[in-house]
Simulated assay, not measured.
Amino acid sequence: MIVRKLGRQILILLLLIFISNAIMLFIPIKQALVFEYQNTGKVLAYIPFSKEKNFKIKYTHSIHLSDVVESYTVTKEKRIKQYELMYEDFAIGMPENAFDGEIFEQKDGKYYIKNMKRIFPLFDLRIGKVRANHRVIYKNKEYQLADYLEAGTWVRIKIKKISLFQQLKGVNILEQ
């Protein structure tokens, strides 16, 4: 009788441990810059955020073959705010001036649009196959996106909390 009661208690304890581990595995807890496969929600890669909430996307313009750098920060509402754009050539596909409230500057042969307040819940990007050489810059370090994501892949970039399971399935760009 005591053995049976003890066995039942152990079984209940093991079941509670299993359920709590399963819950911890699937509850989103870590805020990250996430690269999802198209619009499926499947996390391909991510950058876990610490206190630093700024990042940049750098690429080679397909026509000018010069670098373009888009600078972003994360808002309190967990949206993506573009606050600066840097480019080297005035031509097709590049702005010729700043919008209201923005500042246009030319410095050291480069053009800057500063004080931008363009806010997005997310944005889409197709990883370049030939020239684009997309990179993400986080904490002043560049990461080649083609090292983590297949060239030609359409990714959706957003800020979201991810679960331990998603972290295990995706690629932590900072650890590669």
Results as ranks from 00 to 15, higher is better:
E105F: 06
D147E: 15
G128D: 01
A45W: 03
V43R: 02
H64Q: 10
V74N: 02
G101R: 04
R118T: 13
A91N: 14
L44E: 08
A132G: 14
W154D: 14
V74E: 07
D108I: 07
R131T: 15
L168H: 08
L125I: 10
K56T: 05
R156Y: 01
V136Y: 06
Q167M: 10
G170D: 11
G152T: 11
K117L: 01
Y111E: 12
K58F: 00
P121T: 12
Y46D: 06
P48K: 00
F165C: 08
K169A: 07
V74L: 05
K139H: 06
I57R: 05
E77T: 13
K129E: 09
A45S: 14
T73M: 04
H61E: 02
A132K: 09
E70F: 04
G109Q: 03
R118N: 15
E96P: 01
Y111D: 07
N54Q: 11
D108F: 12
A132R: 13
N115F: 03
A45G: 02
V68P: 06
F90A: 09
P95S: 12
F55S: 04
F123C: 02
K117T: 06
V136E: 13
R135H: 06
V74C: 03
K110R: 00
K78L: 08
F55G: 03
R126W: 00
Y148G: 02
F104D: 04
N54F: 05
V130S: 01
Q167I: 01
T60Q: 12
Q166D: 15
E70A: 03
D100L: 13
V69W: 02
V171E: 08
Y72N: 06
L145R: 07
N172Q: 04
F90G: 05
D100P: 11
I119L: 07
P95H: 07
K110I: 02
Q106A: 08
A45V: 01
N133Q: 13
S163K: 10
Y148Q: 07
T75P: 13
G109C: 00
G152C: 12
E88H: 04
S163H: 12
K58C: 00
E102A: 02
V130N: 06
A151Y: 12
M116Q: 10
T60W: 10
I57A: 04
I57L: 09
K160C: 09
R118Q: 13
A132F: 12
K58V: 00
D108R: 10
I103F: 09
Y83D: 14
Y143K: 11
I137S: 10
E150W: 09
T75V: 14
H64A: 11
L125H: 14
P48L: 00
Q82N: 01
D147R: 11
K51E: 14
E102K: 02
V43I: 02
E84T: 01
A151G: 15
D67N: 05
R156K: 15
I47M: 06
K117C: 00
F99L: 13
G101P: 04
F90V: 13
Q106T: 11
G93Q: 15
K110D: 03
D108Y: 14
M94E: 12
K169D: 11
I92N: 02
D67E: 09
Q144K: 15
E142A: 00
Y138F: 08
E102L: 00
E88M: 07
Y46E: 09
T75W: 12
W154I: 05
S71V: 03
E84I: 04
H64V: 01
D124R: 13
I47N: 06
P48E: 04
R156G: 00
I162S: 09
E142S: 08
